[in-house]
Design a protein around this nucleic acid. Structure first.
Length: 200
DNA sequence: CGGCCGATTATCT
DNA sequence: GATAATCGGCCGG
């Protein structure tokens, strides 16, 4: 499997979010190996984007988004949830892609162990906080380098997705964000059935 | 299946 | 002191 390199991430978050569909998110911990196909993403691009954390300028929390591309930006919200983002765009341009849904393909038993209550029920990995739970990710992993061959967290080329099957919609949860940012179609999804994958 | 609501706390004003 | 890039349980249809 070929690793997505730094150049892949050194682009507009919208382009990266689009191209991440069908790619393989890989996570290795002392407990084992896990992988899933990315099927839902969202783009957050720049300080002008009022839906992006960076719109208030650089803070301790969002600093990672201002850093070099190809690193993880993992932040805490709603008092209990960690969300995984992949930093994009050149250094000093604050941008990232939120990973919202994966189709589990390897290490399903371990992911299920990490989510004991809802494991294997419909939609058990369709949500950004569900993914961090399953993959054992939290704030201590903020800043992980995604471009290392044997990295603990990385993304590999995956399945080819038919472009005409990709849907673009407004981003989720931006209830208090003003227009036009609230409605910009920077959420990308693909029906898993369009991929030739057998979920486990 | 869809809508409503409480949980719970780091971060910023 | 208010808010949050969410989740899961509980309700009704």
């Amino acid at each position: 499997m070929s690793l997505l390199n730094r150049d892949f991430y050194t682009r507009h978050a919208g382009d990266v979010a689009h191209d991440l569909l069908g790619c393989r998110l890989v996570r290795e911990t002392s407990a084992g190996f896990m992988a899933g196909i990315i099927v839902e993403t969202e783009a957050y691009q720049g300080e002008d984007d009022l839906g992006c954390h960076a719109h208030v300028g650089k803070t301790v929390r969002n600093a990672q988004m201002f850093g070099a591309p190809g690193y993880a930006y993992i932040y805490f919200t709603y008092g209990m949830h960690w969300l995984l983002n992949l930093v994009t765009s050149p250094e000093d341009v604050a941008a990232a892609v939120l990973i919202r849904t994966i189709i589990p393909v390897e290490g399903c038993g371990l992911m299920a162990y990490n989510r004991p209550n809802l494991a294997f029920k419909a939609g058990w990995l369709n949500g950004p906080a569900k993914i961090t739970q399953a993959l054992q990710l939290n704030g201590t992993h903020n800043g992980l380098d995604l471009c290392l061959e044997a990295g603990k967290l990385r993304v590999e080329c995956g399945l080819k997705v038919p472009v005409e099957r990709i849907e673009t919609t407004p981003r989720i949860g931006l209830n208090t964000v003003p227009e036009p940012w609230k409605s910009i179609p920077w959420r990308f999804t693909i029906d898993p059935l369009a991929l030739e994958v057998t979920p486990c």
